[in-house]
Design a protein around this nucleic acid. Sequence first.
DNA 1: CGCGTTTTTGACAAATATCAATGCAGGTGG
DNA 2: CCACCTGCATTGATATTTGTCAAAAACGCG
Lengths: 244, 244
Amino acid sequence: MSRAGGGGAGSAIGRAGCGSLCEQCRVRGISVCRSIEPAALDELERIMTRIELPAGRVLFDEAAPAEGLFTLVDGVVKLFKMLPDGRRQITGFLLAGDFLGLAFFNSYAYSAEAVTDATLCRFPRDRFLALLERHPALEKELLGRASSELAAAQEQMLLLGRKSAKERVASFLLMLARRQQAAGRTTVALAMSRHDIADYLGLTIETVSRGIRAAAAEGLIRLIDRHHYVVVDDRRLRFAAAAE
Amino acid sequence: MSRAGGGGAGSAIGRAGCGSLCEQCRVRGISVCRSIEPAALDELERIMTRIELPAGRVLFDEAAPAEGLFTLVDGVVKLFKMLPDGRRQITGFLLAGDFLGLAFFNSYAYSAEAVTDATLCRFPRDRFLALLERHPALEKELLGRASSELAAAQEQMLLLGRKSAKERVASFLLMLARRQQAAGRTTVALAMSRHDIADYLGLTIETVSRGIRAAAAEGLIRLIDRHHYVVVDDRRLRFAAAAE
DNA sequence: CGCGTTTTTGACAAATATCAATGCAGGTGG
DNA sequence: CCACCTGCATTGATATTTGTCAAAAACGCG
């Protein structure tokens, strides 16, 4: 499936434009990396703080005052919203290079929590916005990211609103594979729990489990163990994902 | 009368972010109206073309080369994506003042079609992007819009992934009421068909119909006719929408 | 090696889709 | 102006999908 950004599930998953995190930016610990003048990079570096976030730790809560913006340097972070009674919807999994925390109202629209141990850079909101004024290229970069995140969000709405359980699971398996293939891997890692997958796909853990097993039984994938698989039949997997 | 619910009525519906459509911009026929320097407005006006789109007419198709950007001056437009077998997900309804067509890859991520007769302004993509270079305030405006659309998309993912049919319908009725109340109306117009509502909420038309009737039977709303209602019990409607 | 947690599996229940009429309203042509 | 026609909406009966509940199996960890 041709998901904008080559796999941008949910919010800000690695984007074609940014490709793999460029080395220079990785070193600098920031991911806003395309077409940014060195002067802006220097300024960014001056106002940033590095954060180590252990797996399961909350970075910020929905509706909290948005005092920081972040880039993810390493690890996986999930974004989610909750209903008053505890139902949860994960809106995206973020990978290295992704940006989060942009809140044009003054509070976050979602919560963010580390799936694995993660490393981030934090930029104080006011100073970052001030910096934005002086560096239009940075603003353009953010607009591009927001735009592709929006495309990914729309793709996810299609999945949530119109795909069957099996199609959702196949779409997810395909999306993960695409992202990791882009990084040259053939074995795909399922870093997140069945519970997280379920809350991302709008299903229950049981239905996710059955969907994954069915995909394996039908020869679309081969399961190495509960958290690793290989795509065996890409064409049929795409078909199962209703992606063609 | 046209299903537009009266073109004038549609256009009166403001947008939270933009407030009500500013008069100056209405006159100029463009909706990118906050904090834009007059010079930029003049330039925008110079490159724009006005378009009248009859109800049901397609503005552009998903995956088509994105050669234009648009602002909606009057009427209602729906954005949607389709699966190969014809299933459809409407990702949003646009009202006067909304912007569409931003595509940072070179093709549209979704199709756009008029729900009611609509008036738009078209800006050629290349010239608009060039103009963006010279007017950072315009870029900031777009970033703000993209950001709030993203928040709305995440809210919709929560609805599609985790809310029951009745909650979805209640959320929809509440959302429409909020948008129209902001414009000082008390009777809410349901400009779109049950089919469109169903494709927006990820349901079938029958389930939407039952949901609306149930909301009326429970005294949350009072139906004037099939395309108009009044919110009777806001608090319970919010509760039914799982919004509190 | 045993224990708690996650995942899988199975039986059953509930929500929603599907199928099938029927009703309603607006537009059209007589 | 009225009656019919057509498409949209509603309603009801039934089917299907997916969720719920319960338990067993697998895994990770001390």
